[in-house]
Amino acid sequence: MDDFRQGLAEALRLLASGERDVWGVVLLSLRVSLSATLVSLTIGVPVGATLALSRFPGRALLVGLVHTGMGLPPVSVGLFVSLLLWRNGPLGDLRLLYTPTAMVVAQAVIAAPIVAGLTHAAVQALDPRLRLQLLALGASRVQMTWWLLREARLPLIAAIVAGFGAVISEVGAAMMVGGNIVGETRVLTTATVLEVGRGNYDVAVALTIVLLALTYSVNMALTVLQQRQRRP
């Protein structure tokens, strides 16, 4: 328990002194993971809603694929994104490897299936009569989808929470495509790995505490949003 107490003290000291560029690392973690979550929403919500609302051959196979994607190992995603972004790789012209943008791309790939899978479940769980009613009221397909998503907002916010949680906590992809470069691509998880490798356990515990506090703040904001909109 001493390690934890020391870590807590070290966390407060780091945040107060701003040593090791800890605020820069915190802000980058937040920026990368929030951007990745946003990108994953713009992909995952339409895909999830479409899978829930349309009927076409092979749909079950696609749903199964999305569900598999919900458990994609971050290190595998990091590896594939690296292979694509390498200077001599297919997308080498973009010069993105070892940049925060590459980290956003990899994390969006990790979060998108989670958002899609949970959106699919949320929309499919709605009462089918609601859909018929909306169509009967003359809603266009886009309007109908919009209202259904509104109706499913509680589980949809849970999807955002799950997507964000998956990416803020992952280290494999961030390390591989970011490179853990100080001042550029070092985020809380990769900094923690580095400090463990250096044997600086107090700093590693401190960074973990900061990461948990950050995740809690973001999730509190989402929870407030979720609960505030809840009307009887």
Binding site: W86, N88, Y98, G179, I181, E184
Partner: peptide
């Protein structure tokens, strides 16, 4: 500079690939 810290084997592999 973008320093990428890996094992010596992996570092040489990155060099060999022109990465």
């Amino acid at each position: 500079v973008k320093p990428i810290a890996v094992g010596s084997g992996a570092a040489l592999e990155l060099g060999e690939r022109g990465e």
